[in-house]
Design a protein around this nucleic acid. Structure first.
Length: 430
DNA sequence: AACGAACCCAACCGCGAGGCC
DNA sequence: GGGCCTCGCGGTTGGGTTCGT
């Protein structure tokens, strides 16, 4: 309450910015940097509060801002990250180079939210709408209870995953910032051979040169690449899984319809239904369990004893499946930048279990040094290391958030402590 | 052509976190 | 340790534009 008024001083202008004001602000920042936002308006000759100036700069005038329509890949990224992070727009923005959190937020609210709603998906929970009817009232005692328990478990997993991802993002952000600072310091000290790799293409090089960095663009490349690698590998594993006996796949006609609709609505992208289905299984499993769901992959036959329970569970997961199928179909239909991200061949993932191994290690490796965050090719481990069908314990795959403490040193330590891929023997198979 | 509804997006507002004194 | 200040974030607003009748 003791807060000092920011924009309430008399004489300070509010509302839309004029071109003259933009020019003044731009000229001042290009010459001096923004420094202290509070004192900037007076120095720049603007009748605005510092907050307004900062907003105008970060959301509109910043030179490293891409304007215009969002690409399909950007939409996918937003949807997927929103499922993980919720309304943490700034965190989401770090994955989308040249997009501001405000722009993403607006795009979500005006486009994506409605689109998901149209598809019958709750944009808040990212679960099918009908889900609420099944579990909300707690009406079903028998099968509904089992389904509800499963759902709660899945939700808990998802929540845990989101927390972990959140902690990971923060750790990566810190590391990336440190790495870039080191990089800048190194290049300033010596113009000779570069110690750390050059800034990635998406990085606003000129902004860095002018010390006009956006606070939200520090790790866009590394994080995007890391995300892309995970998704790409999920896809790769799914492709391999699709080569397995056809009995392993459940019919998904509704999903096929959704895919067709999406193809019409979202653009003319090729969607391999079987492929996407398994990719969905993989990605959904990753989100909910940190592993591929056996239910998704096992043959249709099962024991009679747990048939009823499994039916209930299936009904539950079928809805989730629809959602993640639709998301994964988008992933499937897009072309990820394979040139920048080393992607293992699908053959490297002979089973669902190996998916766990392969998906975990690149991410872990990526944290092994701050510099590696800027060069994803360095981060990728040897593919042969992941050919075994061994599954990894979740604790190894996903270190507890505490492992990603504020210091990069402790992060590195925790990563180094993880066993080498070879250490994951087939004995761990389920 | 006119009007209202719906949509879009830049900008504002309030709050919390972190740093500094 | 506590208060103040600055900054960044997320939710919300409101004015301009587009669409439908």
């Amino acid at each position: 309450m003791g807060r000092s008024p920011c924009c309430e001083k008399d004489g300070l202008k509010k509302g839309p910015w004029t071109p003259e004001e933009d020019q003044k602000l731009l000229a001042y920042i290009e010459q001096h940097g923004h420094g202290c936002w509070r004192s900037l308006p007076a120095k720049a000759g603007l009748q605005r509060c510092g907050k307004s100036c900062r907003l105008r700069w970060t959301n509109y005038l910043r030179p490293d801002i891409k304007r215009g329509k969002f690409s399909l890949q950007e939409e996918q990224t937003i949807i997927q990250l929103h499922a993980l992070l919720g309304n943490r727009w700034s965190a989401i923005a770090t994955h989308l180079p040249k997009r501001t959190d405000n722009e993403i937020k607006n795009y979500w609210n005006t486009h994506l939210k409605k689109r998901l709603a149209k598809m019958g998906i709750d944009p808040v929970t990212h679960k099918p709408r009908s889900d609420a009817l099944g579990t909300g009232g707690g009406g079903g005692v028998g099968g509904g209870g089992a389904a509800g328990a499963q759902h709660a478990k899945a939700a808990a997993h998802l929540s845990h995953t989101a927390q972990w991802e959140s902690a990971r993002l923060e750790a990566e952000a810190r590391l990336a910032r440190e790495a870039r600072l080191r990089s800048l310091a190194a290049s300033a000290a010596s113009a000779s051979a570069s110690v750390v790799s050059a800034p990635p293409p998406q990085m606003p090089g000129h902004a860095a040169a002018h010390r006009l960095d956006s606070p939200t663009s520090t790790l866009s490349f590394s994080e995007s690449a890391a995300l892309a690698s995970v998704l790409q590998e999920a896809h790769g594993a799914a492709t391999a899984a699709a080569a397995a006996p056809s009995a392993a796949m459940q019919p998904m006609q509704a999903y096929e319809e959704a895919c067709k609709e999406q193809q019409q609505q979202w653009g003319d992208h090729v969607v391999n239904v079987a492929d996407a289905g398994f990719a969905a299984a993989g990605f959904r499993g990753l989100l909910l369990d940190g592993s591929l769901s056996q239910q998704d992959l096992r043959p249709a036959t099962r024991h009679d004893d747990d048939a009823a329970e499994a039916d209930a569970g299936l009904q539950e997961t079928e809805e989730e499946k629809n959602y993640w199928d639709s998301i994964m179909s988008l992933v499937n239909s897009s072309s990820l930048p394979t040139s920048s991200v080393a992607v293992p061949a699908p053959e490297s993932y002979p089973s669902s279990a190996s998916l766990q191994t392969s998906m975990a290690m690149p991410a872990l490796e990526a944290y092994s040094s701050p510099a590696s965050l800027l060069t994803t090719s360095v981060a990728m481990p040897a593919l042969e290391a992941y050919s075994s069908s061994a599954s990894l314990p979740t604790s190894v795959l996903m270190p507890a958030p505490e492992a990603y403490s504020t210091s990069s040193a402790s992060l590195s330590t925790s990563v180094v402590a993880a066993p080498a891929p070879e250490a994951y023997s087939p004995a761990l198979d389920f």
